[in-house]
Each structure stands twice: as C-alpha cells, then as structure tokens.
Nucleic acid binder design. Sequence first.
DNA 1: GCAAATTAGTAAAGCGGTTTAATTAAGTCT
DNA 2: AGACTTAATTAAACCGCTTTACTAATTTGC
Lengths: 405, 405
Amino acid sequence: MRTKRNAGVGTLLRGINLDSVLALAIDRDGPFTRTEVIDATGLSAPTVGTLVGRLIRSGLVRDLGTGPSSGGRRPSFMEFNARHGFVAGIDIGPTKTRIAVADLRGERLAYRVVPTPPGLGPAEMLSRLAKEVRVLLKEANVPHGRLLAVGAGAPGAVDRDRGVVSLAPNLKGWTEVPMGAILQRALGAPVVVENDVNLAVLGEHWRGAARGHGTCAFIALGTGIGAGLVVDGALHRGHHFLAGEIALMCMGPQFVGQDFGSRGCLETLAGLKALAARWPHVAQRDPDQWVSELFDAAEAGDLQARQAVDEAATLIGIAAANLSLVLDPSLIVLGGALVQQGEPLVREVRRIVARVVPGPGEIVVSELGKEAPLWGSLLVGMNLAREGLRGALREGLSLPSGGAS
Amino acid sequence: MRTKRNAGVGTLLRGINLDSVLALAIDRDGPFTRTEVIDATGLSAPTVGTLVGRLIRSGLVRDLGTGPSSGGRRPSFMEFNARHGFVAGIDIGPTKTRIAVADLRGERLAYRVVPTPPGLGPAEMLSRLAKEVRVLLKEANVPHGRLLAVGAGAPGAVDRDRGVVSLAPNLKGWTEVPMGAILQRALGAPVVVENDVNLAVLGEHWRGAARGHGTCAFIALGTGIGAGLVVDGALHRGHHFLAGEIALMCMGPQFVGQDFGSRGCLETLAGLKALAARWPHVAQRDPDQWVSELFDAAEAGDLQARQAVDEAATLIGIAAANLSLVLDPSLIVLGGALVQQGEPLVREVRRIVARVVPGPGEIVVSELGKEAPLWGSLLVGMNLAREGLRGALREGLSLPSGGAS
DNA sequence: GCAAATTAGTAAAGCGGTTTAATTAAGTCT
DNA sequence: AGACTTAATTAAACCGCTTTACTAATTTGC
C-alpha cells in the first residue's frame, strides 16, 4: 500500500512464482512435500518455504503433518485444499437443465437434472434455477459464502464479455437475457456465461475424449448442429462468436439458389428434423427413443431407415471433412442425440472423412455424452474461481486468517 | 558464471523489461525519448536509463542528441537502429522466385524477381538462389556478416520444425529437401522455412489488407487452391500441418463416391485447370494472360466464359462460406492468378458468402498480390532475427563494447 | 547403542534489479 | 535574475531470490 509502481513490478516475480507453486499443488492429485516443489519448479528451498507458507496461511493448501522418513528427516506433507472454495455449473438445455457443484479441483460433489422450467420468463427461470443451485450447495455441505464462481451455459448466441444470451431460439423468450448479471445477483458469485457447444468441447477437452489434444472440435448433432472448437489449447470463438456454426454449412452448389439457411444447409438436411421427416414412427415422442429405433431399423435392413441414416451420415461426414480441412484438428468428437446410440453413425462419418481428407484426425464418440456442457461449465467456473484466488493471494498477502479447516 | 540458479531467475526480470523497452523502440516509427519509454512501460526512470544505455551500447538503438525543450531540460532523442542487422526473404514459386533484403523493421532495401531456375535439382537451385541473395545484399550495402536471418517459402508441404520441404508437387524433384539447412550453410544465417500460403497470410496480416485483423484467412486461387490462417493473432498450421488445405474440400454429396481427391473437390472443380478446360483460347500461354481474357469475355457477355467463371465463383464462394462458418474470421483475403484481375470474381464470391453466412466478415482482394508470400518471408525472417538479438542482449550484459557504431 | 550419513527444512548473508528520493542539467517564463 | 519545469542521473533503500550455514530428525553401519 505504500509503494505504487512496486506493486505492479517488484511483486511480479513473486506473483509468477506463487502461481507456479499453486499450479503444481493443484496438479498433484495427492499430497506432496516442499522438496518435490523445489525439484519441479526449480526454485530454491527457502523461496519455496516462504511461498508454501503463504499458501498454507491462506488456507489454499492444508498441512498434513509429517510422513514416513526415507533415510533422514521426515518430510512434512501437504495438499491442495480443494474444498477451500466451490464452484457451480449450470447447463440449460431446451428440455432439461443440469446443475452441479464441484470443488476447486472439479470434483463433482452434487449433481441434479431438472426439467427446464417451461412457461416461465427468463428471469423467473433463472431465479428458480438459482434456488436449485442453493439446494445443491446445501447438499454438498458448502459453507455460506464459499461459492467462488459459477459457469453457466445456454443453447444459443452468447456474448461472453457481457454475460448476455443474445438469442436462444430453443428457449422461449430468450433474447438479450443478462444471464450473468441475474445469476450473479441471485448467487452472490461471479458468473461466466458461455455457449453450450463451446462448453461441450471444453468439457471433453478437460475430462473427456479430447484430453491432451491441442486442437480439436466437438460436433453436436441433434435438433441443432454445431461445433465447438479448441485451437492450440484455447477455445476459439471467432470474430462474431460464430465460429463452429456449421449448421449453415452449404452442402453443394445445387443449394445455393435457395433461401437463406432454410434448405441446402447441413442442419436442415441432416438434423433431427430432417430425419424425423423421413421416419414415420416419430409421433410426439422423445427424440432419444425414435432415433434409437431408427438406427436399429437401419441396422436391421429397413430400406427407408437405412436411406435416411446413410444420407445424414454422408452429409455429416462431408461437414466433418471440410472442418478438418480448414482446421486440421487432431481429434473430432461427435455428440448429441444422433450419436447417443454409439458407433453406427460414427463409423460411416469416419469412412467419408477418410475418403476426403488425406491425413484425418481421430473421430470418436463423446465420452461425457449429455453431461459434456455441464463439465465445461464447471471448468470455466473453476478457472474463474482460481483466477480470483490468484488475485486475492497477490493482494492480501497479510490476510488475518485463512478459511475453515 | 558464478551463480547457477540466479542466472536464470534474477536476470529474468531484466530480460522481460529489456524486451519491453526494445519492443517499444521498434514500434515507434520515429525518434523517442527516455521519458516516453517511462510512460509507456511503467518502469522507473533509473531503470529505463540503464536499459536504454545498454541498448545504445549494443548498437540496437542510436543516440540522436538533444531535441527542442518544452519548458525544461532538453530531451535526448534516440531511435531504433533498423540498420543494425538485415534479413532476407525468398519466395520460390513454380515459375518465378522473388527475393528481397530488408532491415530490422522490414523496410525493403532490394528486391528482385527471377525465373525459378528450371531443370535444376533442389540443391543447385537453392545455391543459385543463395547467390542471388548475396548480390542483393551487396546492392543494399549490407556489410558482411550483418545478415541475421532468412525467411524462405516454398509451394508445398513444409515441416517447419526441421526446415524441410516434404513435398512440392509444382517443383520438380522436390521431395524431402532440407531447404533450411542448405540455405543456412550457403548464407551463414539461420533460416525459417514455411509454406507459401502461410507466408501470404502473414504478409497480408503484417503489411497488407489484413492489418489489425485478429483472425483472418488468405485464400490463394491459382493452379492450386489453398488457405493460410491466422487465428487469434498467430499462424495456425494444424496438427498435421494441413490446416487450410481447402483444395480438397468436398463440394457436395454427389461427389463422395468418386476417387479420392481427383474429382469433386474444390481444386479440380474451380482451379485454374478446370477453367482452362472450359476455355478454348488457352494454348500454352501464361495463365495471367488468358485468365484476364476469360474474365473480360465473361464481362462482355460471352456465354461460355460466363458460365465457366460463374461456376468457379460459386464453388469458391461456397468454400469461403464454409471456411467462414468454421473459423469466423473478420476478414478473408483473396489472392492468386484468379483474382489478379481485380474485383469481378470477388463480387460474386461475396454474394455467395452473404447468402450462406449470417454475419460474414469482409472479403477483399489481396493488397500485396504476388508479393504477399515474399512479405511473409521477410516477416518470419525478421522475427527470427529479433529473437536472436534478444537472446544476445540477455547474454552479453557485460560485453566490453557493443557492435560497430 | 552410538556415530556417520542422509534427508528436510530454516536462518543468515549476499546479490541483482528495481524503486524512491535527491541531485544535476538545461531550459522557459515572468 | 530568480522561480518554476522538464529530463536524466546518482544515491540510498527495498524486495525477492539464491547460496551458504545450520538445525532437526531419522536411517544405516559398526
């Protein structure tokens, strides 16, 4: 508080080192010793000592006492205190909403699927969902005020910077909804808002099929078709937040003359509605059910079903191939209602892509399934929470006392 | 030399600050004072004083003496010494090769277009080109040993890390050519090798139509069709160095059954060869000539020409649209023989894209034309040179004397 | 069982780099 | 001419890291 420039520069090095120690603490799943930190970071023993001390005082790292000796003084173990703070994730879908509470390492402590409250305006819906979050917080024994951040996803165009859902066609009345602000007020914690497909790719990249892939894509195949992209390790949104909007991908010159985005684009030719139009047994039932039947019938040899599935697979394959040619990801993850089934569609897509792209990346089925966006929301929430903690550490080096044990 | 850890950490901060001062010096086109550096970097006056002193002693910054007072002591101006070192750029094309020499700010000092030596093996061709570079160095009055880096581009698959051109179909005998190593030996300076389309997008991003666009694409339309991508400010190559290979983009389900990459892909349907097949007056002439005539004829109403052009434009438009949907760039730059003409093709592409993509980015003609890859090669060479300089600065903190005046 | 060796961690001293404060330098303005 | 400004340097203090020296606790060897 005395110095002015010093705070931004002199402390810079300390900040960097503190961050790297903290990152290491989080990375290690289990307990660790000071010596391990020394080896991993390359910092000297005294420095590590003071930094670790600071982390312990803040409550972010918990002292576990001494462990068994390995031929000398017994090491004192410690552990990242993942329960120092908590995050919530919300994934609002057209029909179902998934909510979860997790600790700072992303371990899920409570989870619930609720029907997306129908017939409510955005504000009421969100306040009801916030109530659900509070229930989950109680269920997970989260002390009051320990919710550090919230990640929230919605199916539609999202202005992430302002936390506003600009337009969600599948949610009634959702235009220009300040979702971030509403949830922030209701829950008393900062909120990140993100598009659900983007969250899905982040989820798969974090805990699903795309772990370790620097550049990858998640293609959601359902009523809507869309892709989320991770490019060189970071989510890519595009200049108008439109990256991955392959729903509108033009499937050939013969479709160009037609109306804007209504025919001839991928989603209208291969989306759930297109399949429904070609399969008589749809009725009003849940998509998951009749899609499953449709694929079974195709497998069994039903000509109509087979044709419908093949055509969709071909188009999706072309789209995946074209995406591959543009981005050259090392992996494409397929998810959504159309692949809930498993492998049949994926095999066909793989075949098509291999026919177009010389060195195609892997193509696999989502590991997290319908929970992918929820995991993504937990991730972005967690990142926000950690960011806040880092900031707090840098500032309040002299916090009177850390948190609860 | 005494300490071990300290050398890597204590000096770290100095390195960072030195870099930021140097970056600022380069950024400013004209002279600047210490005070300006203080304001811009946030560093203190004494620190800036010593850092600037070090830069001046090294020769990277030139003292210009005092300037007029503004009510107090006269400021002493200085300037980045762009002539402290030099870089060369080489762009090898199928028929013509462009070479240039520039200073550390990228100002071109000498430039030459030579026919790509025909009938020679890669090694001889490169040594001949190296000779040309030496001529240009002399022409630009570059003192011996002041060539700090070389950027080189080739039309084909490039393994950038090893500096090897894996395969260049348009250059005879070019398979697994260690271009980087050969040029490095011949010119005595480190070499970066990069694909020519990638260089083109870098060129346009640096000095051409794409200045200031964080995410953009350059689509080269000629004998081959390919795109170079800048994503969030950095060149994106993809996992197999295949990003932007839209030549193979599949133009519709009707083409899927066909042979791998031979029919039904963008390049075979809309490339120069496809146009040549539909225009009788091609003969053996230079593409630039008959393409020009073809477009003129189309404009004038020649039915055959018109159809050929329209079809190509439609396909290119679809490809650009699909690329837009995947990447959502704020700008697409079109270049290559097909747009040498100017706007006619571009207008049509714009029309198609606007029909498919809701919020399309700008679509413009290349500003740098055939020189785009050359500019890109200068850029990557310059970056390499600057990197080397930064490294040298960090090391030689105790050099008895800097370079020549 | 006791000394030597090993491992873990802390205290003290020193170094590099940066900051603030004070000083020098060279003006302009009244 | 004297007061105030602006620019840059010197002097002193500070901060954080590293090395060295030291304490602590335990295994190992005899």
